[in-house]
Design a protein around this nucleic acid. Structure first.
Lengths: 336, 336
DNA sequence: CCCGAATTTGCAACCGGTTGCACGCATCGC
DNA sequence: GCGATGCGTGCAACCGGTTGCAAATTCGGG
């Protein structure tokens, strides 16, 4: 169907190499030749076959975009930004949905079969071993929203969840809460673990504060709601740090459906600052994660790796900030 | 790096064709040969290169998944389902984000360069001409959530938006509303146009009902909120059919921030039944669109086309249903 | 106008597979 | 024991490009 290099060469009356060279920049072609070829190409509607050329060049410009989080609305924004950023530098995202996949090996193989140039893992819940599998296979990989440790096995871009846990604790203490709770996502997620560690560490400094902890079965509305309903039935804390905004909103829903409200009866602070957290009928106090920066940086790192930069993996950590809205009680008046 | 066909052949002491044949099913290979090859392959960790084989077979198993809707949370579910369904039949979604792309030609070219086997367009806002461009390029295409007309230029899977408009109108009339409004998405979207047509047509049968119309600049929370704020300032209708749930939730937020509430002051009915419409703090009455069926069917149609079935394009239309929640006044008591 | 250097072009091999064809060999019937 | 049949295998050409190398062309300078 589609015109090939050979067709164009025949029509222009030149060699195939000449055609190839006109379409690869950096190759030496005379102006006259270029004209002839371009005209023939235009007439035939020729487009070079990216896959065929990848055979010899070894680059496909295909990037595996791997995630297991297709329930949390925040990830729509993540996908939006990743696809745009990748497209902007001429890369094509090959999306891999790991939701019900158990075996990392299999995805690695699949992506290898398609000779992806690199892999972006976008998830805060996948075990680090997963990203490692790609590195072991010799594929450049960057883990966005992964756990940031000192000397990570692969490039990581994200936030420091331990610090976030501390911030949350600090915020609750400053507002005078003395019985606080951690309502995390699944406790197998590194993000959950780290946030809990930070939360507890910070509270350790405040002897008078009582702390409890529990975990929702997933980062989802329903899971948050169910877990909060359970907590409400067993004497809840005064305020909770929820693992994530969507969990928080589920929790708020539980609170409302018991005829209670935030912050009057229970305080809530979330994490992510997803768009709907700012909606007036939700108005969630939360910790903002700089998604845009994380994505941009991850793509940037990927580009550098593709360009041949193979420095040792580094964790790039971005700061979070508290977004004050309406689900925590006000700061006590300053005594002057 | 990776072992190639040649390496395996050398190690097993057989010809390259023999190796190729062991990995393509339907080819004739003796059991003994198969064993030798498989062992050599295992030892070398050989995986056939999907792209190389696509050169001769003409199939890449790559499917372009094209959308311009990365703001509406409902589309996360759409992507989740599409990627899973495609993966389940051995196809790989190559995601194309058209958010700020103006020229359809360009995406067509790009996807052609990657020799995708087919294209799924998932959008209710892209003009039909867009999907047509792929058909014209000889690429199998199915348009999910597209406009369903009698003899469509390409396969379409979705709902009948005219019927939805009628349902909404019918629902409002049945509840005794006499001043109703249509708060649509961007009026360039076919879905908006069709819903409006149906809405008006149905209301035409009810002489006493006054109807107004306006359009939000996008299918997004902010757009819905802004438009509703504007309406509230100019004497709103008693109830609105909003183009979409996310728009509806924006509208609800506007209503609340004016100290009003639904359904007491203004009634709202949405469309989509996205997950959060059911959340207690939103509780939106809406029209449910059977997303799962639409996606499954779209992938099914695609598979058939890939298998060589090139019957004339058909529009596959699914029914919607009203989901009664709390943003419309109750049905008047039946007079018996 | 001639010569050497620089640039442009074509040839041919190669990337990693697939596949039509012909040949070798075992099997079968008679 | 013979030829017909058929399966299994290897050869070689091909898919659509790229690229090292050498030949051909262009160019500049004297």
């Amino acid at each position: 169907m589609a015109a090939t290099l050979k067709d164009v060469a025949a029509r222009a009356g030149v060699s195939r190499s000449a055609v190839s060279r006109t379409f690869t920049d950096g190759a030496s072609v005379s102006a006259k030749m270029r004209h002839k070829v371009e005209r023939a190409a235009r007439e035939l509607g020729y487009r070079p076959n990216a896959l065929a050329s990848s055979l010899t060049t070894g680059r496909t410009k295909l990037i595996g975009l791997v995630s297991n989080n297709f329930r949390n609305p925040i990830f729509l924004e993540v996908f939006d930004r990743f696809t745009r950023a990748l497209q902007d530098c001429g890369l094509r995202p090959l999306l891999v949905n790991l939701t019900d996949e158990t075996d990392p090996e299999q995805s690695v193989r699949m992506l290898q079969q398609y000779s992806v140039d690199g892999v972006v893992v976008a998830s805060s819940t996948l075990p680090p071993a997963f990203a490692d599998a790609f590195r072991d296979a010799g594929v450049p990989v960057v883990h966005a929203f992964g756990r940031s440790v000192g000397a990570p096995p692969v490039h990581v871009v994200g936030i420091d969840n331990v610090v976030c846990g501390r911030m949350a604790a600090q915020t609750l203490v400053a507002r005078g809460y003395t019985r606080v709770g951690f309502l995390g996502g699944p406790d197998s997620a590194t993000s959950t673990q780290d946030r809990l560690v930070g939360f507890l560490a910070q509270l350790d400094r405040h002897a008078g504060v009582i702390v409890s902890q529990s975990f929702a079965r997933a980062y989802s509305f329903d899971a948050g709601r169910d877990e909060m309903l359970r907590l409400l039935d067993h004497g809840p804390a005064e305020a909770y740090f929820c693992g994530d905004d969507v969990l928080s909103i589920g929790a708020l829903s539980a609170i409302q459906s018991r005829g209670l409200s935030a912050p009057e009866h229970v305080g809530i602070i979330g994490l992510n600052d997803m768009e709907m957290s700012g909606w007036q009928n939700i108005d969630l106090t939360t910790i903002r994660q700089p998604i845009a920066q994380i994505v941009t940086t991850a793509v940037d790192v990927m580009q550098k790796m593709l360009a041949g930069d193979d420095r040792a993996p580094v964790a790039r950590v971005f700061d979070c900030e508290i977004v004050e809205r309406g689900t925590l009680r006000a700061l006590p008046a300053r005594v002057s």
